[in-house]
Amino acid sequence: MNDKKKIVLAEDNSTLSLLLKFRLEKEGYEILIAADGKEAIEKIEQHNPDLILTDIMMPFVSGLEVISYVRNELKIQTPIIVFSAAGQEEMVLKAFNLGANDFMGKPFSPNELVIRIKRILG
């Protein structure tokens, strides 16, 4: 039985997604990549992940809408880490109000992300 912890990664920058996928798979996690918010919601519903990593600005459905859907529609308490760019401080506050657990400002270090994920998932 696959006992790897599942992480949904919603990020529209394909290069960054691939980089994080390699890094996190090396740490023993199973990564499900979503290129936009819509795909992220589908993957969350389908796989019930242990953690969600989401960018705020994404096509079709934004990261904020993903958080809102997870907390208010699916009503699940899966930890969520938000990625934000400089100048999106207001968005980060909104993300926390909607139920995000942590955030990382871009540009960020993949090593730091791994540390935060380990802290959350144990």
Binding site: N13, S14, T15, L16, L19, K106, P107, F108, S109, P110, N111, E112
Partner: peptide, 15 residues
């Protein structure tokens, strides 16, 4: 463009 896409998003040793 691929290099830039990543350069703008990550910091530290990888950047």
């Amino acid at each position: 463009s691929s290099l830039l896409k990543l350069r703008n998003e990550i910091s530290g040793e990888m950047a």
